[in-house]
């Protein structure tokens, strides 16, 4: 698939069919993530592929609840976690991206793991789309719970989770700001 088509037609998919995803297809998606650029080639990303229904259920349980005035509802993404054959958890090793060789933070942002994990994530969502699979990037979950469910060691953080499967609906394109609202020429006041 042409890169511009992939970028423009990728949608966040929230309902999936239970159809399986084979290893070869999954590996193409992971491979795309692995080829992302990173801070000084530190490649801090780690991908945990959750196929085991019990693990997927534990991850679903880590999703943030929807708060209503009188009660809490389950996050709608939880259903997707039970239907899809695969959830990819993008985790990151902390203390590598964003640091100078002497180990001090190189910028005012501290650790860059969020940045580099996203470079890999974007490659994976585009690759999945090109292979006819849907994804949605989920960040609103209790990362501590997910880290415990996956036995993530000290020094690693769970960043986002991506259900991966055959879409059961066409996603909608949320409206984008016009470029004129986002692009500044030379200096901010121009």
């Amino acid at each position: 698939m042409d890169i511009f088509d992939a970028i423009k037609n990728r949608r966040s998919i929230r309902r999936y069919r239970p159809d399986p995803v084979d290893e070869a297809t999954l590996n193409k998606v992971l491979e795309a993530g692995r080829w992302a650029p990173s801070w000084a080639n530190t490649q801090c990303w780690r991908f945990v592929v959750a196929r085991d229904p019990a693990v997927r259920e534990a991850l679903a349980g880590s999703l943030s609840k929807i708060k209503l005035p009188d009660r809490e509802l389950e996050n709608p993404a939880a259903g997707a976690f039970r239907t899809v054959p695969v959830v990819i958890v993008v985790a990151a090793k902390t203390g590598t991206a964003g640091y100078a060789p002497d180990g001090a933070p190189a910028t005012d942002k501290g650790d860059w793991f969020m940045h580099d994990a996203a470079l890999a994530t974007q490659n994976m969502v585009l690759a999945a789309h090109a292979l006819g699979l849907g994804t949605v990037i989920i960040g609103a979950f209790d990362a501590k719970k997910a880290e415990a469910a996956l036995n993530l060691p000290e020094g690693y953080r769970a960043v986002v989770m991506l259900p991966l499967g055959v879409p059961d609906h066409e996603g909608k394109a949320p409206p984008r700001k016009e470029l004129g609202e986002l692009v500044i020429r030379d200096k901010w006041d121009k």
Binding site: D2, I3, F4, I7, A36, P37, S64, K109, G110, W112, M114, H115, D116, A117, A118, L119, T121, Q122, N123, L126, I137, G139, A140, F141, A143, K144, R157, V159, V160
Partner: peptide, 27 residues
């Protein structure tokens, strides 16, 4: 803040856009 990453979520979203930008430029 909705996560334990706090305000740093902007680092994630900026990188999603940056990855698209680098791929589009390369193409």
């Amino acid at each position: 803040p909705a996560t334990d990453k706090g305000e740093y979520w902007y680092m994630f979203d900026i990188a999603l856009a940056m990855e698209n930008l680098t791929l589009a430029a390369h193409a």
